[in-house]
Every structure is written in structure tokens, then in C-alpha cells.
Write a protein that binds this DNA or RNA. Structure first.
Length: 198
DNA sequence: ATCACGATAACG
DNA sequence: GTTATCGTGATC
């Protein structure tokens, strides 16, 4: 399966975020192949989005990759422990991104369970990657992959299945004022693999 | 001081 | 099943 290319990501975040639902996230690691269907994303919309790290044109070492070309990984540490994984979208110079919040595991669940330090049984497959930091841990996405090109191996996306989509407001951005109410979170309808209910 | 989170505890 | 609490360290 061909990786999704630059042109897929070089579109507005509000188009890419829902389009990624149903697509595969794939990571070739030394442990084995990890993959899963993306079931939850959020759009972060550049300098006019009060929830965005680039709001009002803020440009720092941390968010620098957002300002570059689409299709690169924006990864950062939050709350001292947790990693977040985004894909840069939009045109070069327009700091947009899509935040990947949850994945339905397909390949490499045994490895994911080991990475997550939980036992693997039928009841907890949905807990392997049902959150932004959990999926980083499960998929062996580390901070040193900051800036990585995600249009080719080892970490990339492929086209997936058609899915029904629902929206909600975004999670964990109470600081964003009115922006906290925008319906920029996208979920696969009725998926049990999402981080929390819409 | 703040934060795109999640494990745990203390409840049903 | 639910809700509340708080650790953790890079960032600015």
C-alpha cells in the first residue's frame, strides 16, 4: 500500500483531519510492524486558532516544524510525562496540524501491549492506543522523531476504509476561550477505540 | 506558572 | 461504570 503523500497533507487541517479517519498509521520498528486504523483526530488551525501552539504567529524552537512543509511529525512532551503526535498540514509557512488522538490497533498488538506495559487480552485491545500519549507509547513514537517525514517509511500513513464521522469540541484546551467550543475534533462514529465519548 | 494527558483512588 | 486528583519536566 502506497503511503499518503505530500499533497494529501498540504491541504487545510480542517480537511485533512476528517480525511485521516479510517486511514492506517504504520510504523516499521526493530520489534516488528505496528499498524492501526485512525479513529480520532483534531484540527489545529494556525495563527488564528487560540488553541494552536502557533496562535498569533508564535514561533519557537518547539513549534518550528509546524512552520515548515506538510507531512512532517510535530511531537512534543506535555505534563512532564506524555508525548503528543501531530502531522503538519497546509502550505509551507502556514503553521497548521492534525493531532492524532486514538488508533484502533490492527498489527503488532503483542508488541504494543509490551510497550504499554499492560497484559493483552480481548478486553483491553481497545486500551492500547485510545489516547494521544497512549498511542505514542504503543506505536514506539519517540521525541527523537520530531520533524520526521511521515510520507515514507518507517512511520507513515496509508489510505483506508470509508467510515462514518462525527464531530465534537476539542479536548483539554480550556485555555482557548471560545476556540474550545469549535467542532474541530473528528471521530469514527460508534468506535470503541476513541479516547472518550464525544 | 503553565500544559493537545493518564494512572489511580474513591466512589457507585 | 463514574468523577476528582495530581505527578512530571520542557517551555517561555
Amino acid at each position: 500500500m502506497m503511503p499518503l503523500g505530500r499533497s494529501f497533507f498540504a491541504r487545510p487541517s480542517l480537511q485533512v483531519a476528517p480525511d485521516l479517519l479510517g486511514c492506517m498509521l504504520v510504523h516499521y520498528t526493530s520489534e516488528g510492524v505496528l499498524s492501526g486504523i485512525i479513529v480520532e483526530t483534531e484540527s489545529y488551525g494556525g495563527i488564528n486558532d487560540p488553541a494552536s501552539h502557533a496562535f498569533k504567529g508564535k514561533r519557537t524552537a518547539r513549534n518550528e516544524v509546524m512552520w515548515g512543509p506538510a507531512g512532517h511529525a510535530y511531537i512534543y512532551l506535555i505534563y512532564g510525562i506524555h508525548l503528543c503526535f501531530n502531522v503538519v498540514t497546509g502550505q509551507d509557512g502556514d503553521p497548521q496540524g492534525v493531532f492524532i488522538r486514538a488508533v484502533e490497533p490492527r498489527l503488532g498488538m503483542k508488541i504494543m501491549a509490551r510497550e504499554r506495559n499492560i497484559s493483552l487480552d480481548r478486553n483491553n485491545i481497545r486500551k492500547l492506543a485510545n489516547g494521544p500519549s497512549k498511542l505514542c507509547t504503543a506505536f514506539c513514537i519517540t521525541k527523537d522523531m520530531y520533524g520526521t517525514d511521515v510520507t515514507s517509511a518507517p512511520l507513515f500513513f496509508t489510505a483506508g476504509e470509508d467510515v462514518d464521522i462525527v464531530t465534537s469540541d476539542r479536548i483539554g484546551i480550556d485555555y482557548a476561550g471560545n476556540g474550545a467550543n469549535w467542532p474541530w475534533r473528528f471521530l469514527v462514529k460508534d468506535s470503541p477505540y476513541i479516547s472518550r465519548k464525544a
